[in-house]
């Protein structure tokens, strides 16, 4: 199970008929302790609105003289605060009800402001961790929130429209603060990847690869390559505010080669299959693909 699956236990701090009111400090302590430990808490009052039951398992806590009436369709547990500690009771019921166990994760993931997004897909192209995807309407979407690397806001830096938020980021407008004209104009917010690489992305990559082959055939020096990689990563870290942990998890040269080999094998298999059905033309060579 991923860390974002499962239902939370909902705790109801009850002080209605059939119970005694809590002391002000006791109420505050129970509430803040439960919230600090990841529980959702509702404090209902007679005649006032709260979010209705939603099918999640529920724990009713209070100084209960008798169990309050509950919907028989709803899974409800009762615990008396005169006998048990609020947090202990919540943990025990969460276990019994099979509700989601809380992990120490910071819910860090991009949130798209669709009032600003132009669906340019730069974020999807840029992210190495498969966080973004495209929905059935061909609209960019965040599909794997828990793949996102905690404290890394790099994709928001490459968004030319300042449309990507990380609500837990320290500074605006990435944290959701109002986007001002100077934010849009700021160079750091307007990194166009293809422009950075010289306009024609694929052309640049081909040229770079040809030059690299020539260079490595005459002076293959791994320590130089590692130094260059380190320098580039240092620049990325500084310019895009990427944390060390993310840089450490970037794929190694061997990983990239392995992925490329897998992708090539897949492509060849697909081509071979389509050939038997379509025609007998020879499959493209590496030269045809420019690799």
């Amino acid at each position: 199970m991923s860390r974002i699956e499962g239902r939370n236990l909902r705790v109801v701090l009850y002080e209605g008929p059939g119970s005694r009111a809590l002391d002000g400090e006791e109420r505050f302590e129970a509430l803040s302790t439960l919230l600090d430990n990841g529980f959702e808490v509702t404090r209902p009052m007679a005649g006032q609105d709260v979010a209705p039951a939603d099918g999640a398992p529920m724990l009713v806590l209070g100084r209960l003289d008798e169990a309050p009436a509950a919907d028989p369709e709803q899974e409800v547990h009762f615990r008396d605060l005169g006998e048990v500690d609020a947090l202990e009771a919540a943990r025990e019921v969460r276990e019994a009800a099979g509700a989601r166990k809380l992990e120490a994760w910071k819910p860090w993931f991009p949130v798209i402001d669709f009032d600003r997004c132009t669906n340019c897909m730069q974020c999807l192209t840029f992210c190495l961790f498969d966080v973004y995807g495209v929905d059935e309407k061909k609209q960019i979407t965040v599909q794997n929130q828990d793949n996102c690397k905690t404290d890394c806001p790099a994709c928001s830096r490459v968004c030319p429209e300042v449309a990507i938020l990380f609500p837990k980021y320290g500074k605006g407008p990435i944290n959701g603060d109002v986007v001002r004209e100077q934010d849009v104009q700021r160079e750091a917010m307007k990194v166009d990847i293809s422009t950075l690489l010289g306009g024609d992305l694929y052309g640049s990559l081909r040229t770079r690869q040809r030059e690299a082959r020539k260079r490595f055939s005459t002076e293959r020096d791994e320590s130089k390559a590692l130094l260059e990689r380190k320098r580039c990563l240092g620049k990325l870290k500084k310019d895009l505010d990427i944390p060390d942990e993310v840089l450490m998890t970037l794929p190694s040269a061997e990983d990239i080669e392995e992925r490329a080999a897998r992708a090539k094998a897949k492509m060849e298999k697909r081509l071979a299959r389509s050939q038997t059905v379509q025609d007998a033309r020879p499959a493209p060579t590496e030269r045809d693909w420019g690799i």
Binding site: G6, L35, F39, E40, R43, P44, P107, W108, F109, P167
Partner: peptide, 27 residues
């Protein structure tokens, strides 16, 4: 939170809206 607790007003309190959004919580 303390002022809410002392107010006599009904309310819902969630640990973290971001976490609920990531889980697409029915609540």
């Amino acid at each position: 939170l303390r002022r809410l607790c002392d107010s006599g007003q009904a309310f819902d309190a969630v640990a973290d809206l971001c976490d609920m959004s990531a889980r697409k919580d029915a609540a």
